[in-house]
Structures are given as C-alpha cells and as structure tokens.
C-alpha cells in the first residue's frame, strides 16, 4: 500500500520550547487518520508542517511524495486544507466563493457537485456572513474539496460545535471516505476519532504516546472495571475497597469481575446490608485516552 504521508523523527522547536519532539507518522492512501491530543500537544504544529505553512526543525517529511517545504505550487493541486481558524469573505455566497476557488485549480470538481457533497444546497445563495458556524464550516470543507484533492487536511473540524452540528460534520467526513480520499484530521475528542478514523495516533506534549485502530488503542491501556455502590462502611468485606465521595469502589481485573461481584453480594446478603446504586463500569475509550495523555 502506498503512503500518502510519511513522517520520520519530526522535530519543531521555537525560540524557547520544543513543540514537536520526534514524531513518526504513516498515513496510507485512502484511509481516514486521526491525530488525537489535548490542546497544545503539537497537533496543529505538525499538521501545518505537513501543509507547508511551517518548516520542520529536523526530521523527514513526505506528503504525496514531496517535502512540503520545497514542493512546487502544483503539489497543492492535490491537497485540500481546512484550517482551524479561517473565514471566507462574508460578502460572497457559498456558490460564489466556491466558484472563485475553482478558478485556482487546473482540474476542479463541478461547483454544484461540491455544494451537494457538503450539503449546502439550501444555503448556496445566501451571504456567507449570515450563515451559522456549522454552515460556515461546510463552506470551508467545500473550498478544500473544490480542487478534487487526493489528500484532505482537517484541523479540528468540529471544535466548538453543538452535538447535532458535530453529527452532521461526521456524516460529511464519512462521505469523504466514500469518495476514496485520504483524510488526516486532528481532534481533541476521542469519540470523534473513534467514530471517523481507521487509525488513530495519540499525541501528548509533542510525542506520540499510542497508535493503532480504536480497538487496539483500547487494549493498549489496561482497562480496569470498577464496581461501586453508595455506602460508607463495609466491615468484613473480603475484597479491598476505597471510599470515593459517597460511593465505595472496588477495582477488579477483567477476569475477576464475576468473582468480586459474587463476594460483594454474598457479603451484603450475610450482613443484611443494601447495595444502593450498585454498578459495574468498564472504562470507555475516552477514559483510556484521558489516562494516556495524563501520563
């Protein structure tokens, strides 16, 4: 399989701090790859090096076979960029803006087709200044797609969106998969990465701390189920417990969960104590991610 993006030992230093500390990244042709991390982890710095806006301090970067720092303008025919923060002339309508950007490319997609892909048919002739945040983001994506790129960069495509606007955006990004495009997206939402991406790399403090499919990531951090109920004492309980707020909590290895539950319910029956709010919780991928970046 050919690689759309190939990054080896990427470093980026600013005057007094190192934002990226040796990142390796392989993105296959046609896959949706999520670059996941908290704010300030180095996501935007890395993606802007890949887009050609910043230059690397050290390391090798190949995007569609070229080093973005030295690639000719024609290289940009094949990439589409949605920046984290950028506006479009508010005086124009989406259709006009898309037509203007179409003129920048040698082989653009038809304007109407792009409007349809991003679902802007109903708003195509309204002024962009009057659109909602989510609708403006659709215009951003349309401008990134008009050149019919092989590779699309999406820098935090849903940050600041309400849940329904996020769902809509996810649908739109899923549509890109149907078009067979390679997508590199950054996000600080685990559920977003999980929902959209074939593979995920987690970055924290300038380094990649985990990578793989969503499922593989879940397995990399040991998931410890937690059994808890509302109570204050548990004298005579045979398993170790801790008090957390109003709840008593027992942590159990996955294979021991049934045994631990049996021990607790047996103890409750023997002593005649109730177990109000009893629950067994397995950590979500979100919890897994939070643990990863906290380490």
């Amino acid at each position: 399989m050919t690689l759309a993006i190939e990054v080896t030992d990427l470093h980026k230093s600013y005057a007094d701090f190192e934002a990226v500390k040796g990142v390796d990244l392989d993105v296959n042709d046609g896959e949706i790859f999520a670059f996941l991390g908290p704010n300030g982890a180095g996501k935007t710095t890395t993606i802007e090096i890949l887009e050609g806006f910043r230059t690397a301090t050290a390391g090798s970067v190949k995007v569609l076979g070229q080093d973005p720092a030295t690639a000719p303008l024609s290289w940009k025919e094949e990439i589409g960029i949605v920046l984290q923060e950028s506006e479009v002339e508010p005086e124009l309508t989406p259709r006009e803006a898309i037509r203007m950007y179409a003129a920048y490319y040698q082989a653009p997609r038809p304007v109407d087709e792009v409007i349809e892909i991003v679902g802007l048919q109903a708003k195509a002739d309204d002024r962009i200044g009057k659109l909602s945040g989510g609708q403006k983001r659709r215009v951003d994506l349309a401008l990134a797609l008009i050149g019919d790129p092989k590779l699309v960069f999406l820098d935090e495509p849903t940050t600041g969106f309400d849940p329904s606007a996020r769902r809509d955006s996810w649908e739109m990004i899923e549509n890109l998969r149907a078009l067979g495009r390679t997508v590199l997206l950054t996000t600080h939402y685990m559920d977003e990465a999980q929902q959209l991406a074939d593979r995920i790399a987690v970055i924290a403090a300038g380094k990649i701390v985990a990578r793989g499919t969503a499922k593989e990531l879940g397995e990399q951090v040991k998931a410890i189920p937690r059994i808890s109920w509302i109570g204050t004492t548990a004298d005579g309980l045979s398993v170790p417990f801790v008090q957390e707020g109003e709840r008593l909590v027992v942590e159990a290895e996955e294979q021991d969960v049934i045994g631990v539950v049996r021990a607790i319910t047996g103890w409750a029956t023997d002593t005649g104590i109730d177990l109000p709010g009893f629950e067994v919780i397995r950590p979500s991928l979100e919890d897994t991610y939070l643990r990863l970046v906290a380490e």
Binding site: E51, G52, F53, L73, S74, W75, K76, E77, I79, I81, L83, E85, S86, E87, V88, E89, Y101, Y104, Y105, Q106, L143, G147
Partner: peptide, 16 residues
C-alpha cells in the same frame, strides 16, 4: 483578510 485567515487559505491553494 490576513487576520481572518483568508490569505493563509489562499496560500494553501495552487494559485500564484
């Protein structure tokens, strides 16, 4: 346009 990121977006296209 520079502050709104319009110029940056244009630099991401093949327009001279």
């Amino acid at each position: 346009r520079r502050e709104q990121g319009v110029l940056k977006r244009v630099r991401g296209t093949p327009l001279r």
